[in-house]
């Protein structure tokens, strides 16, 4: 069994662990660092629940090896809030009730952060396209789209 030492900066802090080569980034986050906010929904890169940012880009952490992220900077859902203050996207999902069971929410929020970074003021169609890699089985997406729009307003410094 091949093992290797991997150092990944997660939410601003370096973590070095010796892990099996097969270790997926999501397993590194959940099992090694106990950051269980990143979920595994499908494990087949369909659902996007495991979305995190690697070097500033949204990726599905179930379809990336920890070894591929060696030396990279990763942001997970746990890295979004500042102490007790929710990130504007978290606040918007909460206020718009952009969730029901909440399982897909961490991935939705990380995907939204990725979308708004590239496009700070997306249209409905751009939101649908921007969240194409994330599935929600509860909401029908209506309030998720509302939450993304509110997120965009808040991040642009506007009112909710």
């Amino acid at each position: 069994m091949n093992m290797a030492k991997v150092t990944i900066k997660v939410n601003g802090k370096n973590h070095t662990k010796t892990v099996e080569d097969r270790t997926l980034l999501v397993d590194f986050l959940r099992d090694e660092l106990k950051l269980t906010g990143t979920h595994v929904g499908c494990d087949t890169s369909q659902c996007g629940c495991c979305t995190v940012h690697v070097n500033g880009r949204a990726v599905k952490s179930c379809t990336m090896l920890a070894a591929q992220a060696n030396g990279a900077s990763v942001v997970t859902i746990e890295g979004m809030a500042k102490k007790d203050k929710l990130h504007p996207i978290q606040r918007a999902f909460s206020e718009c009730h952009g969730l029901q069971c909440g399982f897909c929410t961490p991935g939705m929020i990380m995907a939204t952060a990725g979308l708004l970074k590239d496009n700070p003021n997306p249209t409905d169609a751009e939101i649908y396209k921007g969240l194409e890699g994330n599935l929600c089985r509860c909401t029908g997406y209506i309030n998720i789209v509302k939450a993304v729009k509110m997120s965009a307003r808040l991040l642009r410094g506007g009112k909710r």
Partner: peptide
């Protein structure tokens, strides 16, 4: 191609 996360990798 695919979705944003796929296009990022």
């Amino acid at each position: 191609i695919g979705d944003p996360q796929v296009r990022n990798r």
